[in-house]
């Protein structure tokens, strides 16, 4: 097990470097640069070229790649040219909200989706199952922007129960910690509901189909034949095996915790990594784009490893050495 983890961690290094190398190559080939969207006629081509030489010197992409690696090793992940601030600071400003929003949405969707999937599978074709199936299909089919704007209209505009935008009330910036915490929660209710509903549906579908497969297998029949109660059969014997595909699903969702949700962030005017990445692309702010992608790549690689380790935890048949 220990050897396996070490081996996997070592494997991450070349994969990470490879992906970054490709990223630098693509960025190098992309049309337009940091000065392309300066629309000031007083900025003559010479002045623009001089500015670009300072902000983004004309170097081969492999040199830029190497320079980035050397600086990253010293904890410097580049300078965001539009913000005139270190990339790490800009990401830090946005990642807190993204992480909180996604984690709440994920926990909410797991707590709701997995039990609903189990119930749905054990009572297959019952009214409850049909209801949950229809509900989850609606959840999957409803576009986020539609659901978001709908909830915004109902709860923020018509009922005025919840705020329509933002993460916090600026007037509480110096309030005690707990007050601020409550304020964040108050602002995140709607966005996390919107983000969580779609995921609830997908967790439910996966759990249901996985559970159905397990319930039909021989050892479940054996367990029932032994005279075990239905509760024990489902929750002790079937559930653990049915969890394996769910663990994969959770593993896939971990990078999502920091990659952000552009739609939800936009509708509810929240700071977030998703929107930041889009802005970095449209403004050709390459250091920021590379910083965000490097972070996402690393998280994805580590999350896959964690998912693999979780397999062993839920399924004793899987052993690593």
């Amino acid at each position: 097990m220990k050897n396996y983890i070490i081996r996997r961690l070592l494997q991450i290094i070349p994969v990470f470097l490879g992906i970054l190398f490709i990223l630098f190559f693509i960025v190098d080939r992309a049309p337009g640069g940091i000065t392309s969207n300066i629309m000031d006629p007083k900025m003559t081509p010479e002045l623009k070229a001089a500015l670009k030489a300072k902000l983004d010197p004309d170097l081969p992409f492999y040199t830029k790649f190497w320079n980035w690696l050397v600086q990253a090793a010293q904890g410097n992940f580049g300078f965001s040219q539009k913000h005139y601030r270190p990339v790490l600071d800009v990401i830090k400003d946005n990642i807190g909200c993204t992480f909180a929003l996604s984690l709440i949405a994920m926990i909410f969707s797991m707590l709701l989706g997995i039990p609903a999937g189990i119930v749905s599978a054990t009572k297959q074709y019952s009214h409850l199952d049909n209801f949950l199936t229809v509900f989850s299909l609606i959840g999957l089919a409803l576009p986020t922007f539609f659901l978001g704007l709908l909830l915004l209209k109902v709860f923020a505009v018509d009922l005025k129960w919840l705020p329509s935008f933002g993460l916090s009330d600026p007037k509480l910036a110096n309030a005690p910690f707990l007050t601020r915490l409550g304020d964040y929660a108050y602002h995140l209710i709607l966005p996390s509901l919107v983000l969580g509903l779609a995921e609830t549906a997908s967790f439910m579908r996966y759990t249901r189909s996985s559970m159905l497969e397990v319930i039909r297998s021989d050892y479940i029949r054996t367990a029932r034949a032994k005279g075990l109660s239905e509760k024990v059969v489902i929750y002790k014997h079937a559930f653990r095996n049915a969890m394996i595909p769910i663990v994969t699903l959770i593993g896939f969702r971990i990078p999502g915790l920091i990659s952000g949700a552009v739609m939800t962030e936009t509708i509810f005017s929240l700071p977030g990594v998703g929107k930041l990445a889009v802005e970095a692309t449209t403004t050709r702010n390459y250091p920021l784009l590379i910083g965000i992608n490097a972070m996402l790549t690393l998280t994805t690689l580590v999350a896959t490893l964690i998912a693999d380790l979780l397999y062993a935890a839920v399924d004793p048949r899987i052993k690593y050495d």
């Binding site: 990642i95 909180a100 984690l103 915490l181 964040y184 995140l188």
Partner: peptide
């Protein structure tokens, strides 16, 4: 579990949010 998870998440974001302040 949910409550404690939620509050730790929020604590994280609160810290991130106040860094500028």
């Amino acid at each position: 579990l949910l409550v404690s998870a939620l509050s730790s998440v929020l604590a994280l974001s609160a810290m991130a949010g106040c860094s500028n302040q």
